[in-house]
Simulated scan of single mutants.
Amino acid sequence: MPSTPFLTLALATTLFLNPAVATYKIVDDYTSNTSDFFSLFNFFTEPDPTQGFVSYQPYSSAVASKLIGRMPDNSIYIGVDYTTKLSVAFNSPGRASIRIEGKKSYNWGLMIADIWHMPDSTCGNWPAMWLLGSGPWPHGGEVDILEGVNDAVRNVVTLHTGEGCVVDRMEGGGTASESNSTSYMTRKSGCGGTAPKGSFGDEFNKKKGGIWALQVESDAIKIWYFARNSTPRDLSGGKPDPDKWGKPDMDFRAGGCDIGKAFKKLSIMFNITFCGENAGKTAWSTWTGCQQSTKKTTCEEFVGATPHAFDQAYFLINNIKLFQK
């Protein structure tokens, strides 16, 4: 996307510098039963920077329209309007949805996000869970942890940042994007790779979701995806140890790049948009096949005329936790 530190350099201790003895301890729990999840976020209500066919709602409207809420099992619901028909011809601003931006920011550490459900693999959808740094984009960095468009079933992980930052190599279990896996990350496409099948959309939801883990260090950014039936024991025990998790799905190794400087003051972001620069335009008529399957010439036409197609376009968040060494 389309962006109090994980551990600031000023607070780095000898323990942090010695990973053999350092352990992660929880510093923030965004979804504890005693806190209001949405009070920890700002609601973005400006026009979509990615040109999506979407109308981002403020907190009051989101509550009144039941686009957000806490479920009986304490999971967090973030969804979209799936009942209103919209006319592109009358310059509709787009389908009502949510974009929230965390009030706190982080530099270093470990983020664990347990997601029960995410927007499904429906043409027009463009959901994301990501981190965005401070300053004019892409300076400050952006980490797209969970993102995809239309009928995708594989998650795409992408990094963006300013000039002078190069990923020396991309390792892990995923598949690198050959065109940009070792390039400057200033390009709009960024530097990224594709996670294994089942990590996104319908396939992800069939497995009752899963857990995403992000580790930001001085020389690397690593991301793991764990299906519901393969979660490491140390996650449920509250003492995560990435050294025991095996190869990450994405392991971005810094070459000519100081990760600590390029990715800083990162805030947690969730949003669901439609069409736009990624799910619409050339994607609609070429590589996703949505134009043919929906019989609609444009993405906006389909999203506006077919509201009930998006009744599964929602996140159910079990918990989000931040850890520091």
Rank of each mutant, 00 (worst) to 15 (best):
Pro2Phe: 09
Ser3Tyr: 05
Pro5Cys: 08
Leu7Asn: 12
Thr8Ala: 12
Ala12His: 08
Asn18Arg: 11
Asp28Ile: 09
Asp29Ile: 04
Asn33Ile: 12
Phe43Val: 02
Phe44Arg: 02
Asp48Ser: 14
Gly52Gln: 13
Ser55Asn: 15
Ser60Ala: 15
Gly69Thr: 03
Gly79Lys: 00
Pro93Arg: 10
Gly94His: 01
Ala96Leu: 14
Arg99Ile: 06
Ile100Cys: 04
Gly102Thr: 01
Tyr106Pro: 03
Tyr106Ile: 10
Asn107Cys: 12
Trp108His: 13
Gly109Phe: 02
Trp130Ile: 00
Gly133Ser: 02
Gly135Val: 02
Trp137Leu: 07
Pro138Glu: 06
Pro138Cys: 07
His139Ile: 10
Glu142Pro: 06
Leu146Val: 15
Gly148Phe: 05
Asp151Tyr: 07
Thr158Asn: 08
Leu159Val: 04
Leu159Met: 04
Thr161Ala: 14
Cys165Gly: 00
Asp168Arg: 13
Gly172Asn: 01
Gly173Met: 08
Gly174Asn: 00
Ser181Arg: 10
Ser181Cys: 12
Thr182Cys: 04
Thr182Arg: 09
Lys188Cys: 08
Cys191Glu: 09
Pro196Met: 02
Ser199Cys: 10
Phe200Trp: 11
Phe200Ala: 03
Asp202Leu: 14
Asn205Pro: 07
Lys208Glu: 11
Leu214Pro: 00
Val216Trp: 01
Ser218Val: 14
Asp219His: 07
Ile221Arg: 00
Lys222Thr: 06
Ile223Gly: 00
Trp224Ile: 01
Tyr225Gln: 05
Arg233His: 12
Gly237Met: 15
Pro240Thr: 08
Gly246Phe: 08
Asp249Lys: 05
Gly255Arg: 04
Asp258Ile: 10
Ile259Trp: 01
Phe263Gly: 02
Met269Leu: 10
Met269Gly: 12
Phe274His: 05
Ala279Glu: 00
Ser285His: 11
Lys296Glu: 12
Ala305Phe: 09
Phe310Tyr: 15
Gln312Asn: 12
Ala313Ser: 15
Ile320Thr: 06
Gln324Trp: 03
